[in-house]
Design a protein around this nucleic acid. Structure first.
Lengths: 334, 334
DNA sequence: TTGAAAGCGCTAACAT
DNA sequence: ATGTTAGCGCTTTCAA
């Protein structure tokens, strides 16, 4: 059996209280006994049980991270960033891919709360924010990322989607494009709506009319982007440029264009969003609006930690700036 | 405060023992009280504390997953597969990216054991298997994936790397290639060694000499592959085909070839390994040796569960078959 | 069929 | 400076 605090107390000839104190560095212990106990602990390879200590009211040093799909490179990168910052705090993270399935969300919700996680970072968003509301109701510290600005008082870190869309739009209009299509994951998510709005704003400022027929929606997949682009290319007057609301869609668009025999970027310019590893892998390399993924993970964790430690009474919203990264998938209209 | 079993007992007018029994479906309880108690629990939104129950000797329903880097698409896909199977068992998974850094490994080891995880799936491998040995020593159930065949009695699920290499090699020689380069992540990992050996075997059988100067090693990154390929292309008699031990390296090779102005696959054939999402995104689409990622995750979890439940005395090694997926990055030598 | 009570490994007053 | 002890929320004999 694993040694307990009793075993080390006995072996050291002290009380368990003393051992507890040297473990936690609390109370006043003579240097001598401290060292002695420390030695014994090492000898016995003693590992304090966090489950026992959690039961006494201390935290579990565990947080949950819910996201749609860990296999999606964007979320994988987010998860890594969150994990890293968590690790610095000595926290572990439970990863929870929900596939946007309410049933999975509920199941994970129940597992997380039963395990008494100290908080959860939510990168999912489903109908009516049911998951979120349940968490709030249970007073679980939360921070929201990758998302909307919900009608709920919750810590949030987000990027300025409008600005990102605007950057994409200006880039394209600046290149002379006037028939600009937009590919969204789902026009109903606030982030996508804002990106679209930003893009349209840039177009309007450049005197470019936006054509609703050039706005297509789908899912967060390459195939969805490809399909949508195919349809757009069949239009009588096809677009000369596309702004896709994420890299996966942008890649689908590129593939569809290739399929049609178009030369990129000469005959079609494509701008993505996210700046995942995929943007550097596709040919031509994707011009895309970069999200500061590291920073998102870091800030999300930081906010959550403050919440957990009760260092903060006010909820806050951190808005990070996106940045257009110009690569080879965009060119001046010829 | 969150309601405890006492609150439920009191509200239901029964003892905590009774409540415990209806929670766990143990003992004999009359249908009437069972329903009554169940109602009360719902009313109070009672969630049994797994930390308390874990303290009484039950398991934590938690496992750890160690991998080099969650942001690497291959490992992200592995993680997702593991998570999914774990979820079916009602388990959560702690993700632990180590960057192959022994310090991080140790820190995670200590966190995982202190939290009394029920087991860990290890997809990392570092010097001297220190991490692994520590786990074994602590009697933590383990299963190894993505890896070697260690000189340790541990459950393992692996793919037949030799066969995978052989498939890649045969494909290339079958296409008429005779100058075949090999890009490895690290010639010292057993899996890479086996892949190389398999490829060489296929070459030998086709009467193709293998040239040690055409074998390059690097890291598990695109850049590393690009760099290695650049050097190979500067050789007096450059290769006409490359077998890369993973998709990232293969992509680097493709990019280096492009950089040189080579037409793919006409002037250079490339075969990867893993069949990650990247293989379908790169242009030309990558011919690659597919690892059955879902199956790996599933089997790993299954083995671990058996181990945890003590249903099995023997350690086993499950060997899965890889499968060559032919796409556009390979062509007959002209 | 139900309940009383002892523990699981630890923390935190409170004594000494 | 160190020890005693009462919990933390649950499971599990063992009685009733």
């Amino acid at each position: 059996m694993k040694p307990t605090i009793y075993d080390v107390a006995q072996a050291a000839g002290v009380s368990i209280a003393t051992v507890s104190k040297v473990i936690n560095g609390t109370g006043r212990i003579s240097d001598k006994t401290r060292k002695h106990v420390t030695n014994i602990m090492e000898q016995l390879k003693y590992q304090p049980s966090m489950v026992a200590s959690a039961l006494t009211g201390k935290s579990t040093f565990t947080v949950g991270l819910t996201l749609p799909d860990l296999a999606n490179p964007f979320f994988a990168e987010i998860a890594r960033a969150v994990e890293d910052r968590g690790h610095e705090y000595g926290f572990n993270v439970f990863i929870c891919s929900t596939d946007n399935d309410p049933d999975r969300e509920i199941k994970y919700f129940s597992l997380l709360t039963q395990k008494r996680v100290d908080g959860v970072i939510v990168a999912t968003r489903t109908e009516k924010d049911l998951f979120l509301k349940k968490l709030i109701q249970q007073h679980v510290p939360i921070t929201l990322i990758t998302g909307e600005m919900p009608a709920l008082a919750v810590d949030t870190v987000m990027v300025d989607d409008f600005l990102g869309g605007y950057q994409a739009g200006s880039h394209l209009t600046g290149l002379g494009h006037r028939r600009i299509a937009i590919l969204a994951e789902d026009v109903n998510t606030m982030s996508n709506r804002e990106r679209i709005r930003g893009c349209k704003q840039a177009m309007a400022e450049a005197g470019v009319a936006s054509d609703e027929r050039l706005i297509a929606a789908g899912e967060f997949t390459v195939d969805s982007g490809k399909e949508a682009m195919r349809r757009l290319l069949e239009l009588g007057e096809p677009p000369t440029a596309v702004f896709a609301c994420n890299d996966l869609l942008a890649i689908g668009a590129i593939q569809a264009a290739r399929e049609r025999g178009l030369q990129l970027p000469r005959q079609l310019s494509v701008v993505g969003f996210d700046n995942t590893i995929l943007a550097t892998i596709i040919d031509p390399p994707l011009t895309t609006v970069a999200q500061p993924i590291q920073e998102i993970g870091r800030q999300a964790m930081d906010l959550l930690m403050q919440e957990i430690k009760g260092e903060k009474s006010m909820r806050q919203r951190v808005v990070l700036m996106p940045e257009l990264v110009v690569r080879g998938s965009t060119a001046a209209l010829t």
